[in-house]
Simulated scan of single mutants.
Amino acid sequence: MSMPPETLPRITPETALFLDFDGTLVSLAAQPELVEVPQGLAGTLAELHRRLNGALALVSGRRLSDLDTFLAPLLLPVAGEHGAQRRTADGLMVSAPPADLAQVLQAAEGLVARHPALKLERKNLALSLHYRQAPELEDLCLQVMREALERSQGIELMHGKCVIDLKPEGFSKGTAIAFFMSEAPFAGRVPVFAGDDVTDEAGFEAVQRIGGHAIKVGPGPSLAQHRCASVSQLAAWLQSAVASLPGSGSPASRPGFAA
């Protein structure tokens, strides 16, 4: 197990902890459904959730159902689809108004039909076009999807690691964290957010703006003031937090949550 970097912020009983999934808790895979969840991850998250009195949430571009499947039987507060959908600490589902994805969906389906190495991921309120298996098609994918975006309303394009996301306008990981921070049990705590991609920068900005800490996992430019080299180092940091935090109540036993 990698040792956690000493420069990472300490997780305390006053922390509100927000974690990206892909590239942060799990290593990236050739296809999104092929990621391997490290042994013990769900248990570590469940224990942190308990010791932080419920103030731990996932903030991801994934669908909520995908995250639940990967971490089953654990159910956590979570923001999916870059903030377009959230499940609060009380289990309440909150969604952005649906946007008209017809133009971008048609364009993405056309690209996949012509280039089978591409993968289209349909979500509830968004879609993702993955080109990890065909990186040479990056410029073409961006051009086609941006042209389709010009024919659409209420949609934003986000360009991540070998993926182009189309999602409802005005929602981001930053807005998701801000919503969580206005609600119990996150309100009044010091937010800490760890992520690895350009799509996490809005979350980094959100937590640092209110005096929290942002952690960039892996290489690349970032406004995050903390850096963690790898998924395994971040896992070691989380495990060290479990060892250092005092025991507390068990919010994971609330209806709808299973540890």
Rank of each mutant, 00 (worst) to 15 (best):
residue 228 C to M: 03
residue 106 Q to Y: 03
residue 111 L to I: 14
residue 102 A to P: 05
residue 61 G to A: 02
residue 196 D to F: 00
residue 19 L to W: 06
residue 47 E to I: 07
residue 196 D to C: 00
residue 234 L to E: 13
residue 248 S to Y: 04
residue 105 L to G: 13
residue 157 L to G: 00
residue 27 S to W: 05
residue 220 G to E: 05
residue 177 I to P: 05
residue 245 L to M: 07
residue 199 T to M: 03
residue 222 S to Y: 00
residue 43 G to V: 12
residue 160 G to H: 09
residue 1 M to K: 08
residue 86 R to E: 03
residue 190 V to N: 12
residue 20 D to E: 04
residue 172 S to V: 15
residue 61 G to K: 03
residue 108 A to S: 14
residue 45 L to I: 09
residue 141 C to S: 01
residue 21 F to Y: 08
residue 101 L to C: 13
residue 7 T to A: 06
residue 140 L to Q: 15
residue 24 T to V: 08
residue 53 N to F: 03
residue 55 A to D: 12
residue 185 P to K: 15
residue 9 P to K: 07
residue 91 G to Q: 10
residue 134 A to T: 11
residue 22 D to R: 02
residue 105 L to Q: 14
residue 124 N to R: 15
residue 140 L to N: 15
residue 116 P to I: 11
residue 241 A to C: 06
residue 249 G to Q: 10
residue 217 V to G: 07
residue 140 L to D: 15
residue 6 E to K: 09
residue 108 A to M: 02
residue 107 A to E: 01
residue 50 R to A: 14
residue 21 F to M: 01
residue 124 N to A: 13
residue 244 S to T: 13
residue 75 L to G: 04
residue 205 E to A: 14
residue 94 V to T: 03
residue 144 V to E: 07
residue 170 G to I: 13
residue 192 V to A: 01
residue 148 A to W: 05
residue 8 L to K: 11
residue 177 I to E: 01
residue 23 G to F: 04
residue 27 S to L: 05
residue 155 I to T: 05
residue 13 P to V: 02
residue 196 D to N: 06
residue 88 T to Q: 04
residue 257 F to R: 15
residue 117 A to Q: 15
residue 126 A to T: 14
residue 143 Q to D: 15
residue 217 V to W: 10
residue 255 P to E: 13
residue 49 H to W: 10
residue 172 S to W: 14
residue 122 R to T: 09
residue 204 F to P: 09
residue 160 G to A: 02
residue 30 A to C: 06
residue 120 L to G: 09
residue 257 F to V: 09
residue 178 A to L: 07
residue 14 E to I: 11
residue 163 V to L: 10
residue 219 P to N: 11
residue 113 A to C: 04
residue 136 E to I: 06
residue 201 E to Q: 02
residue 216 K to G: 07
residue 187 A to E: 10
residue 92 L to E: 13
residue 186 F to V: 03
residue 247 G to A: 14
residue 225 Q to L: 03
residue 1 M to A: 12
residue 251 P to K: 00
residue 39 Q to P: 07
residue 229 A to R: 00
residue 209 R to E: 06
residue 196 D to V: 00
residue 234 L to S: 09
residue 99 A to P: 06
residue 174 G to M: 02
residue 38 P to N: 03
residue 225 Q to P: 04
residue 116 P to K: 13
residue 176 A to Q: 12
residue 93 M to N: 07
residue 203 G to W: 02
residue 92 L to P: 06
residue 65 S to E: 15
residue 196 D to W: 01
residue 233 Q to F: 01
residue 38 P to W: 02
residue 258 A to S: 07
residue 165 D to I: 03
residue 76 L to A: 05
residue 126 A to W: 11
residue 107 A to C: 01
residue 149 L to A: 10
residue 83 G to E: 01
residue 257 F to I: 12
residue 138 E to M: 11
residue 247 G to V: 13
residue 213 H to A: 13
residue 135 P to T: 02
residue 120 L to K: 12
residue 78 V to A: 08
residue 142 L to N: 15
residue 155 I to F: 07
residue 88 T to V: 02
residue 91 G to H: 08
residue 71 L to I: 00
residue 14 E to R: 10
residue 113 A to I: 03
residue 181 M to D: 11
residue 135 P to S: 08
